[in-house]
Amino acid sequence: MVEILKIDNLTKKFKLSAKQRKINKTTDTYKVALNGLHLNAYKGEIYGLLGPNGAGKTTTLRIICTLIKKDQGTILFDGINLDDKPALIREKIGFLTSELKLDDFFTPNYLCDYFGALHHMKKEEIKERKDFLFNKFGIDKFKEVKIGNLSNGMKQKVALVVSLIHDPEIIIFDEPTNGLDVIASKIVIDYLMELKAAGKTIIISTHIFSLVEKICDRIGIIFDGQMAIEDSLANLTKNETLEELFFRLYEEKGGDLNA
């Protein structure tokens, strides 16, 4: 197995404003989001990142995508340090999260051209990718309709296509089926499997156990900014289901299911 993503001792603290301290009823100046997190992902696998709200999943993904900076730790992409070549890393990544929005004023067609150009793609390459992805996700029908006039599901599909326009090596999806109907969800899941078969690495963050059990090769469960467990799905679910494992670990880490 070729290690494509290696994260060691990742730490991130967010400074709390006076207002946030009041809301959280704390006197601490900082909130620890990640506390020495380790993560390893291999080429050609689908990696599932699980954890309760506030555990640090989204923060981890945002740091990997260089949207925010880490405080400590190292992140290696295919042996390249993220600190040394962040722009190169961004070229290799396709990132999709519900926080990424598209400008209502433009059409899917224009936005794909725009983001393709920002990824240094040639016009012919962009056209080829657009033809393929538009056909795959049924965007052809509304490719010239402004984003503002599309339904949420359509917008989500366009965002997905925009994140994949440059044919990234690593695809990072935060809740990949969020906002999609069952048909669109199936298309996305099937496409993720195709990407995996093509040797791409996919990291997804989700709350849906069934999705993880269906598509993931390996999983990592995060509690309080630390990796509680990381292994192949097969190894982890030998004696218990994924859901049982998750809640057992949650309680072992001091979580209260009756709270």
Binding site: T66, K101, S163
Partner: peptide
């Protein structure tokens, strides 16, 4: 406007500086 609509994050994950 970009910050309010959340479209700036989409730009920041591209390779541009």
């Amino acid at each position: 406007g970009e910050k309010e609509r959340g479209t700036i994050s989409t730009l920041l994950v591209t390779p541009i500086k």
